[in-house]
Amino acid sequence: MIGPAIAVACIALGAGLAVGIGAIGPAIGEGYVAGKAVEAMSRQPEAEGSLRTTMILGQAITESTGIYSLAIALILIFWMGIPLVEKLLELLS
């Protein structure tokens, strides 16, 4: 009975760590992109339009690694965690 309990605990821990650590990289990257874009805009205000679209695009693409860790956490929880929890509840009852 202890096996599934440990597994559920590890899955929950893994999902939390995945998203937590996975958020560091994109946060730094997107902040850097935004900072450089603001600098460029202050240097050339007339290019603001194209700069903004490129900035948003760059940030969206940088964000994808964070989204992969989110997707892994979701898979961990929904496809592995919940079936195990149900199995654990059966064992308990």
Binding site: A60, I61, E63, S64, I67, Y68, L70, A71, L74
Partner: peptide, 10 residues
Amino acid sequence: AFRLYGNIFG
């Protein structure tokens, strides 16, 4: 595929 899926589902 994962970028679109993760963003919308998340």
